[in-house]
């Protein structure tokens, strides 16, 4: 097992190098001189400009700039933004907010997805199942910003249950509404998956055998049907968590969540290269780690899977 994890982590290194290289290259290719952007409306003195360029190694060729950057990252120095703030601090401030939002959203998605999916799967073709099918199709088709605005308007403004935007420090109670919206945007697929998985499991011979042993329905459903259906569902939830962890840009923007997606978006708009590259690098790393964790979780859920190589 430890051998397997080590191997997966080693595999992550080339992926990480390749990803940062590509990101750095794309950001490098963005039009405009980033040093000029620092001065805003003013036209800088050429000597000052050259000094700034030298300080950020902007006068060097691309590959040298990349190696400088990489060297710094290995020392956990992500550089400073144009406003002079260390990027490392920004990372430490924003990632916990996004992680909280993502965890809350996944929790909602899991509860709704499993409950609704199990119920429709057990009563395939019934009224509840049909209504759920229609609602999930609607949820899949509606863009997330529409859900955000509807939630903000009705739940936030009209009913006043939640604050329409997240206040400073992103307290948990303010994150409930955006998390709920994110969960709704993802839950439709999860419901379908749980439903089909429950239907498939319920048709297995071992379920019939479980009944023949004299087990009650209230035991067979959670222990022999739901438990086995969890395998694909959990994998999907894990993947969703990975997606949410790297930032729900639109939702964070609308609710003004001081998270990763929001910060990254602002950095892209003003062309802040070091911030963009650092954020994306950490995102790639997180995504890889989440995926390894999903694979390990898979082995916990299904005893037939053993990682030996």
């Amino acid at each position: 097992m430890a051998f397997y994890i080590l191997r997966r982590l080693l595999q992550a290194i080339p992926v990480l190098l390749g990803a940062t290289f590509l990101i750095y290259f794309m950001v490098f290719a963005m039009p405009g001189n980033p040093a000029l952007a620092l001065f805003g409306e003013r036209t800088p003195n050429p000597a000052v400009l050259a000094q700034v360029e030298a300080r950020y190694h902007l006068d060097q060729p691309f590959i040298v700039q990349y190696l400088y950057y990489l060297g710094n990252v290995f020392r956990l120095d992500f550089g400073t933004s144009f406003s002079g703030q260390p990027i490392g601090e920004t990372l430490l401030r924003t990632f916990p907010v996004t992680a909280r939002l993502a965890a809350l959203a996944i929790l909602f998605e899991m509860i709704i997805g499993l409950a609704v999916g199990l119920w429709s799967g057990l009563r395939k073709g019934g009224v509840f199942d049909s209504v759920t099918l229609v609602i999930s199709l609607v949820l899949i088709s509606v863009p997330i910003f529409v859900l955000c605005f509807l939630g903000q308007f009705f739940l936030g403004y009209k009913l006043g249950w939640f604050r329409s935007t997240v206040s400073a420090g992103a307290p948990i109670q303010d994150l409930i509404l955006p998390a709920l919206i994110l969960a709704f945007s993802l839950v439709a697929f999860n419901i379908r998956l749980t439903r089909s998985s429950v239907i498939e499991t319920a048709g297995n011979d071992f379920v019939r055998t479980a009944y023949s042993k004299g087990l009650r329905r209230s035991r067979v459903i959670p222990v022999h049907i739901l438990r086995n259906s969890l395998i694909p569902v959990t994998t999907n939830l894990g993947a969703d968590f990975g997606i949410l962890l790297v930032g729900a840009t639109v939702t964070e923007g609308i609710f003004n969540v001081p998270g990763v997606g929001n910060t990254l978006y602002k950095a892209i708009v003003i062309g802040e290269r070091p911030t963009v590259v650092s954020f994306v690098t950490v995102m790639v790393l997180l995504y890889l780690v989440v995926n390894i964790l999903i694979d390990l979780l898979y082995a916990v859920l299904d005893p037939r899977i053993r990682y030996v190589k």
Binding site: N204, D205, F206, R208, T209, A210, S212, V223, H224, R227, N228, I231, L301, D302, P303, R304
Partner: peptide, 12 residues
């Protein structure tokens, strides 16, 4: 039951 392969729950 008939088929020993499919009549035991693989996860327990």
């Amino acid at each position: 039951p008939q088929d020993p392969m499919s009549n035991l729950n693989p996860v327990w």
